[in-house]
Each structure stands twice: as structure tokens, then as C-alpha cells.
Design a protein around this nucleic acid. Sequence first.
DNA 1: ATTTTTCGCTTGCATTTCACAAGTAAAATC
DNA 2: GATTTTACTTGTGAAATGCAAGCGAAAAAT
Lengths: 144, 144
Amino acid sequence: MAENEIPLRSHCPVNFALEAVGDRWSLIVMRDILLNGKFRFRELMEAEENIASNILSERLSRLAALGIIEKIKDPHDRRQFVYQATSKGEALMGAVLELGAWGAEFDPETDAPPGTPEHYKSDRAGTIAAALESYHAMKPKLSK
Amino acid sequence: MAENEIPLRSHCPVNFALEAVGDRWSLIVMRDILLNGKFRFRELMEAEENIASNILSERLSRLAALGIIEKIKDPHDRRQFVYQATSKGEALMGAVLELGAWGAEFDPETDAPPGTPEHYKSDRAGTIAAALESYHAMKPKLSK
DNA sequence: ATTTTTCGCTTGCATTTCACAAGTAAAATC
DNA sequence: GATTTTACTTGTGAAATGCAAGCGAAAAAT
């Protein structure tokens, strides 16, 4: 509910975004939720960048407190939780794809398929919309 | 020259971008260079987010080592340096604007003018191109 | 010519954050 | 009932950050 307990350094919109997700892990988590179909703690732990469990735990709490994701109990397994992007979280798709396009363009050893930055730049809105559709298709359907 | 001394955690394009600029300060510095017409150490120090001088110094070295900015001696004042974005740095304009649009949309007290996210989303490519033109107009002209 | 100011850092140190390893409780599976 | 899985939590040392002060070279003022 209380979105921000700590005072912001400024209300510059770029700074606001960076204070929310401008650390080394938050956007990795959002990438896995939004693009890679990973919705559970265990799945997110398997990210190839090897996030530590305490850091993942802290980031998930933080993202939930900021209203970027929501934590939902899995009705089929009461040990588990499903983390889904809220509309505020889905709105980060553009930033994730934009950073990914930059990375694909400038990393000579990128894992991204050739043509990724060009494809993205030729139709940003369409690429974002398609990625969101794909996200909704992957997202587990369960009631809160 | 040597772009990356430290091994990357992965060659995922999003991770590549985050390892380059995914800390709390690098994109603040890029915002000030790309959008706010700040090109000198002193000007960058004046950012309202109060970056410490040792952190700014370290980030400028890092961004230069990564080929994102270049450090140019000011011929009119030999104490000073001018930091300009390279083409790799200019390519971050989209990410900065995308994060700014997100911040403007979700910060209820944002400093951004009303309509900023809508304007950006209605024509991302055009907004980025216009911002780059404005950047080139502000950029001090001096030979290396 | 000499003092003062400006500029881009650097250094030292306390505080905060991070990373790695191990452990724990609750629920599910065997 | 014993074992395994899941989502964490709890240490602990290392690294990054933030703050204040200092420093040498160059420019500006006197």
C-alpha cells in the first residue's frame, strides 16, 4: 500500500525509475517474469546469472511493495507462490526490451538472434505489444 | 580499448546492458549528458540527486572504458574535460527515455510535464530522434 | 608577480549493500 | 512416518557507497 517509505532523491522521472528498478537484479527478475515465463521462486533462482536466494527474496518483496509485481498463493501447492507483473510491471516491458536491444547491438558475443536491435527499432510499439501478448499467454491463470 | 575486463555473468542482452549501466548512477550521468546539456565534471556534480565526487569520477572512467562516453580535453581551459556520448552512448537515449516515460507515468509527484508518457508512446522513434537532435545542438564543439 | 579561486579529482573512513554457504519450517511426496 | 521440495532466513566476510577533507595544476584576480 505505502508505495514509498524512503524519500526520493528527486522526482525526475528517470531518477524515479532508477530508484525503483535501477539495481543489478530487479530488471533481471522482471526480464524472467516478462519474457522468460518464470513465475516461481525456484524458477527465478535458476537464472543463469546466479542470483543469491536472499537477494532474490529481498527483491521480490521490494518489487511487490512498489506495486510492480504481486505475490499470489498457488492453490495447487500451498508452499508455492506465483509472482506476476501488475500493470505497472507490465509497463516495464518497453524498458527491458530497449535495454535488451542495446545489449544485443553492442555485445559482440550476444545470445540474441541476429537482427534483434534492427527488428526492435523498426517497430518498437509492435514489438512491445507482441511481447506482452506472449507474456499473457505464458502467465499461469489463478485467482488471488 | 579493452571493453570488458571482468567476465560477464551471461550474454543475455538485457544482462549485458545491466552490467554496463545497471547501477544507480550510470544512467543518471547519461541522462544529464544526453538530455540536460551537462558535459563537465562540475556540471554533473550539480545533479539534484547529489552524486559523490568519488562515485562520479569512478563512473566516468568506467563509462569511458566501456566506450559509452569519451573524455576530451577542453582547449580553452586545460583544467577541464568535456564528456560526450559516443555512438554507443547515444544509443542509450531510447532506454533513458523509456525509463523516464515509465517514471513519469507512475510517480504521482513527477516533475515531468503532463502527457509525457503518452507523447513518448505515441511515437517512440520520433521522440528519440528529436532528443538526439537536441543533444547534438547542445553538445560543445571541440576537436579531440 | 603573487595570491586566490576554480577544477577535477583522490584519500580515508564509517556505513550500507552484496555474495556465498548453511540452516529452517511448512507443505508435499513417497 | 520418513524424505524431499519449496521458499525463504541467518550468519559472515567482502565489496560498494556516501561523506568530508585534501591536493596539485591551471586560471583568474590583484
